[in-house]
């Protein structure tokens, strides 16, 4: 191993040095910054709404939507729309840092990379949930779900399912950032890994729409995936937040 490179400047006193940045302050700053940027540009928000609405409308015309159909396949239709909308949001999580290399500014700072990934994940989750809550009433209008549908629990499944997608998707969004086929790579990496969670969220939503079947099992499974994806993603933040 070669000799160390060093810059032997005058040692700074402790008083000169600011305290290490707090994890929660960095996290909150990233969340607020990303939400502010999205509210200013509305790029992802508009694209997400457009894609999801398009899917809902196309399916509603294709299948002559009604309570009987919704109780059979409504969960799958809903999550297809939300999944495509979510991919738009996840694709842009780190992409917006590229024009002036603002991600490099983060990498050279003393702030925790886990706080960056957690902040990005939280902002994506909030954005995805906001779009889903806007689309849910439209889904109800177009697909006329049966009166037994348990909407409170469906929102709970939306929260848990979106958390799983955002946690794993933010990680892969960072990982694929500097690759040539980024837009292709993100769904290719994310969807196979997220399939168990997707099955759980579709099954839970389906049972809640027709008011029958075992929901608790799928919900527990979904929460398990939430914990797994969040823990793994944050533990590997140092590896994934890298330069080109």
């Amino acid at each position: 191993m070669s000799a160390p490179i060093s810059t032997a400047s005058r040692p700074g006193t402790a008083a000169e040095r600011p305290p290490a940045p707090k994890f929660w302050r960095v996290w909150a700053r990233i969340v607020l910054r990303d939400i502010k940027l999205e509210l200013r540009s509305r790029e992802a928000l508009q694209a997400m709404l457009f894609y999801a609405l398009l899917i809902i409308i196309i399916f509603s015309f294709a299948f002559e939507a009604g309570a009987e159909l919704t109780s059979r396949v409504g969960g799958a239709l809903l999550w297809v729309a939300f999944l495509f909308a979510g991919l738009v949001a996840l694709d842009r999580v780190f992409l917006r840092e590229l024009p002036e290399a603002s991600l490099l500014g983060f990498q050279i700072s003393p702030a925790s990379r886990t706080a960056l990934l957690a902040g990005k994940f939280t902002a994506s989750f909030l954005l995805m949930i906001a779009v889903e809550l806007l689309l849910l009433p439209l889904f109800a209008i177009f697909f006329n779900p049966p009166p037994e549908a348990r909407w409170g629990m469906i929102i709970l499944v939306l929260l848990a399912g979106t958390w799983a997608l955002a946690a794993s998707g933010t990680y892969f969004s960072a990982l694929s950032l500097h690759t040539r086929y980024r837009a292709l790579l993100l769904p290719l990496l994310l969807l196979p890994l997220a399939i168990p969670a997707i099955v759980a969220m579709v099954q839970a939503t389906q049972h809640l729409l027709d008011g029958q079947g075992e929901v608790a099992y799928w919900l527990r499974l979904l929460v398990g995936f939430d914990i797994l994806y969040t823990t793994l993603g944050l533990a590997l933040a140092d590896v994934v937040i890298q330069t080109e």
């Binding site: 700074g12 040095r17 600011p18 290490a20 910054r33 940027l37 200013r40 540009s41 917006r96 840092e97 024009p99 002036e100 290399a101 603002s102 490099l104 500014g105 050279i108 003393p110």
Partner: peptide, 15 residues
């Protein structure tokens, strides 16, 4: 915390 970098690009978010 002891190092600053001024690069080709500003490292600032344009928006």
């Amino acid at each position: 915390q002891r190092v600053g970098l001024l690069a080709h690009r500003s490292l600032l978010h344009p928006d």
